[in-house]
Design a binder for these strands. Structure first.
Lengths: 355, 355
DNA sequence: TTGAAAGCGTTACCAT
DNA sequence: ATGGTAACGCTTTCAA
């Protein structure tokens, strides 16, 4: 087996012209079907499986590779159910369209990405980028679709966080008033509300900060529901959790559930947080939903499986990925005008907060 | 902003030589630190963020990109907790070493991958590839590390499936005999034991087939434990589940738990299956662990969180990914001799099958 | 530090 | 269908 085989050598071996071999791979219409068949099968036998990507993309200015840049570290993203679902949707569409998937993390210092940003024909940016990677990518002038990040200049795909949060809070509140006939004492377990690496409660001045769009929208939705029913939620009933993982979430839940008077409603900004809260409640001997109602956000698969199953807001993460990928592919090939897509959310009522 | 900027133009703009700019990016030692600083910052200002990957890798024959090829579809892999954990470990190491991650799926028909296989400097192959993609990749002559797939020619990273399965089965069996003082009536919910797309029981002749190495090893482990305690498990007590997802798993569990006499031990070849079985048991009003012991395999995060939590075999998926990635990087730079790494498993005893 | 030039594998265009 | 050739952007070598 020859280690390196290129078009020229293959053409020589097969006794045809170099252009013809190239055409066999790229433009079926430029030669007879028979010859094409022969070239394809023979060259495969020789160990040549198609044009070298680097050379081809250097020449053509396009690679067939799509870059997905994640605001958090790659490694964390794989462990996050919501990011995984997004990637699931994205990869579905990319595979269907024979595009490759290059994963980039947006939290790297600088030119740490070796220079891989130059390869993809377009980018999906998930979350809000911190460093200068965003700027670098934008300057490439290639199509970009941003997901879960509001912005003017690029295509965006978002969900209606505010409406979703409002709906689930309203459900919990009215449920408490009507079914359980008791006063509402709600706490909020919030995700990334302020810029701090620690679990902590908000201060009065934090309540109006616009740190991370998504969480602020959800908070706004909760607050609208509260206002609607004349419920009061003090800043010190709102926890900030820096990262969507069980350890931080459990800590916050433990703090929240050991304050007096103890909250009887826990509005959680993610399912991971809510499931952690349910676990802490069980540890503390608090019964759900009699003594405590817990709501989530996202509707990750585990929310339906867990016991008690979780009342939450379905945000269609997989579909979000599909939509983003389709939009990107479309704008790579068609030069369309900037789109801002907003997907609906849906309230999913389950045991942790039943009717 | 100029859309396309290359080394030559940048050099011209900065009034230095093209070689010097190249050196600024690739060989800090070839010029003064001061000049380098200036070039880096100035060129970034101009909108040039480093050499074009296609050109660079064409010239150098190396791209800094690592390909991870998954035997199942990309989209499925993102939904599978074990695959996600592997990717988590892999990406950790790759990021640390400033390598990029290109995802490829191994179940595509043929040259569907556009030709992206030519880009990576090396490959991690996860699972047993079906099509000819494997062959194609092997012919590239680039370093390959195979994970969860036994083979001679390449580096491999595996776990000791047999020992793990034997340990967990022994635990369940002795637990039943000693703690619950009852006879053992065990069924096995197996993953991909035969080549069929449907949930079904094994036939006597299936029991000795070598379809998919991993599952066969686990089956062998279970059988050794059974033999050791003089327990008999007929082929019709062994279910085949074609894919590691809850729907198939629930169906198999339902079948198994409605046979008479009803099994009091369910040995499941994955945690996803075991958690499904636990759910079905609850639906059917079967109490765990009194009436039924369920064991899993993998130790995915949800196994610890679920209620009842799951007795299982920890296979260190994240670490497996790390090890594979390190081995690959090592063999890319050092030309080492073929290694076959086997990671240990560990029995994790929890509520579904307590002491 | 520099300028010049070769060459990585491809595609696209030309005239044949 | 072919053979020839320029160009894609880069790295590397060599002599200056």
């Amino acid at each position: 087996m020859n280690k390196k085989l290129n078009l020229t050598q293959v053409a020589k071996q097969l006794g045809v012209s170099i252009a013809t071999v190239s055409n066999a791979f790229n433009r079926p219409d430029q030669l007879s079907a028979k010859l094409r068949e022969r070239i394809l099968s023979e060259s495969s036998k020789l160990g040549y499986h198609g044009p070298n990507l680097a050379a081809r993309s250097l020449r053509m200015g396009a690679s067939g590779v799509i870059g997905v840049m994640l605001a958090d570290s790659l490694s964390y993203s794989f462990s996050d159910p919501v990011a995984s679902q997004l990637l699931q949707g994205v990869s579905e569409v990319l595979v269907d369209n024979k595009k490759q998937l290059l994963l980039l993390s947006g939290n790297l210092d600088s030119a740490e990405q070796s220079s891989a940003e130059s390869l993809p024909d377009g980018f999906i940016l998930y979350g809000t980028m911190k460093g200068k990677s965003l700027e670098q990518i934008e300057r490439l002038g290639k199509p970009i679709v941003k997901v879960d990040c509001r912005t003017e200049g690029s295509h965006t795909v978002n969900i209606d966080n505010e409406a979703g949060a409002k709906a689930v809070a309203l459900h919990a509140f009215t449920n408490s008033l009507v079914t359980h006939k008791k006063d509402i004492n709600a706490a909020i377990l919030g995700l990334r509300l302020i810029d701090s690496a620690r679990v902590c409660r908000l201060m009065p001045e934090d309540a109006c900060i616009d740190s991370q769009e998504i969480s602020q929208s959800r908070l706004k939705g909760y607050m609208q529901a509260a206002k609607h029913l004349d419920v009061n939620i003090e800043p010190n009933k709102i926890w900030h959790i820096p990262i969507n993982e069980t350890t931080s979430a459990e800590q916050a839940a433990r703090e929240a559930l050991t304050t007096t008077p103890r909250p009887n409603i826990l509005l959680c900004m993610s399912d991971v947080i809510a499931l952690s809260a349910v676990r802490v409640a069980r540890e503390l001997g608090i019964s759900i939903p009699e003594q405590l109602q817990v709501t989530g956000f996202d509707d990750i698969p585990e929310a339906a499986r867990s016991q008690p199953s979780l009342t939450t807001v379905c945000q269609q993460s997989i579909e979000k990925g599909r939509v983003a990928a389709k939009l990107l592919l479309d704008s790579i090939s068609n030069d369309i005008e900037t789109q801002h897509i907003v997907l609906n959310t849906r309230l999913v009522v389950r045991n942790s907060c039943p009717d």
